[in-house]
Write a protein that binds this DNA or RNA. Structure first.
Lengths: 233, 233
DNA sequence: GATAAAAGTTGATATGTGTCAATATTGCAT
DNA sequence: ATGCAATATTGACACATATCAACTTTTATC
């Protein structure tokens, strides 16, 4: 019988791919995680988790990259954040209804560990440092959504697109140049506008010399000006 | 020397005004809360907590009503929710940076208890049921923000206003008629539009016989139609 | 390498929404 | 009660944005 999925390709103990959150675990707890996790590789474009499904596991992204988005009205999506390694993905469903409240799709080939939810919650109860760190992470994510709510509802398109790009440059890639993993559609979903509008705004940004987009990469040319556009909305 | 604030006007033990969250405490923990709380009365219009300030306490709204909103760009606000008794108010600042990330303003004369944050967190660590219930509450609030993000960015004005009204009818007042505590400005902040647009949409809703607004109260006349408007955006 | 499918681009157009200015109304304080 | 300030209302207008349709470019598939 063929092995269609790899149950334990690597041991969590000593693993450098796990989210930093797990550095708070002792070896016994880490062993427990190791014994109750599944490791799966995804190809770019594949759906890692689908909104609405039962949350049997929490996720740790070891490598690759993914987009995390809410599927909204009539096929429209709102990207909440881009997930880079190494990141933990849980969400409000952990405590509320054991469901995933967003869909996660791989932007690059990605390696993801699925950790049993009950085991995760059990460790949360006994390891205070782990719980503190987790809650801090969770709260940071919530604040990101607050921020997104404000800028998506109170800024106009150029300001929204500027914020989306600044988010990518500053927080995700932390460089002035990065490969264009996101389609125009994705950028539209990140800044709450139509694809066509996203294209036009980006074209304007290029004309004004704010960024350069070519050969699947985007480069920040005039950071000052981009931040100004973000500010004046 | 005059007493300008009342340090312990009522005992938490046996208090019917506390948020239901606190029913998970044993008498010893409740006594601890009681000894480390401050009770304050606010008049309608007063600011209960200001965004950005240090979070020394978490709040429990005993009576009255309040609006909880994020102060955004150039004086614009986004109301996250209306707070009715008896409600607990904490927020992501508890675990992230000990700051309040929204402003809370009384809509009615309100009685609020301020519970020492450290005492609150200490009890969270030792009382598992309390922690579970709290996290469930917190997560529900997060999901409300997700929902708001979607409907504010993906629906047009009539749909947004319909959702705001449905929220008030269904979740806050749970009646088909309630006193108009919210100004047109507030309704605009709840549905992410300008005051003038809020006025116009409400006028349309009245013309179409969906609601009746008069003498400081609003009545739901055609629930079916309002939900349809919410649905078609 | 040919073909189809997907993604990106563009300009014209229609619609949604905010801004402004003028006016009406309400609430509050003296 | 009177006057003042805040809130509410309205219509005209300008601007922001989505939609549509046509087209180009890129990517994937056989």
């Amino acid at each position: 019988m063929a092995i269609y999925f790899d149950k334990s390709p690597r041991n969590c103990i000593g693993c450098q791919c796990m989210s930093s959150l797990f550095s708070n675990l002792n070896s016994e707890e880490l062993e427990l995680v190791n014994a109750n996790k599944i490791h799966i590789n995804f190809k770019a474009g594949e759906t890692i988790k689908k909104q609405g499904t039962f949350m049997s596991h929490v996720l740790s992204v070891n490598s690759g990259m993914a987009k995390l988005y809410i599927e909204g009205i009539e096929g429209r999506s709102a990207i909440l954040r881009i997930v880079k390694p190494t990141s933990f993905i849980g969400g409000p469903g952990i405590f509320f209804d054991q469901r995933h409240h967003y869909t996660i799709t791989a932007l690059l080939d990605s390696s993801v560990c699925f950790i049993d939810l009950q085991v995760f919650k059990d460790i949360l109860k006994v390891n205070q440092n782990f719980a503190d760190e987790f809650l801090k992470d969770f709260s940071r994510d919530v604040l990101t959504v607050y921020n997104r709510l404000i800028y998506l509802t109170q800024k106009q398109m150029p300001g929204r697109m500027a914020d989306a790009l600044i988010y990518l440059f500053d927080e995700i890639f932390q460089q002035k140049k990065f490969p264009m993993l996101l389609s125009r559609f994705d950028l539209a979903d990140l800044s709450a506008m139509s694809r066509e509008s996203a294209v036009k705004i980006l074209r304007d940004f290029q004309k004004e010399g704010l960024v350069r987009i070519s050969d699947h990469e985007i480069e920040l040319l005039d950071e000052e000006a981009l931040r100004t556009i973000s500010r004046i909305g």
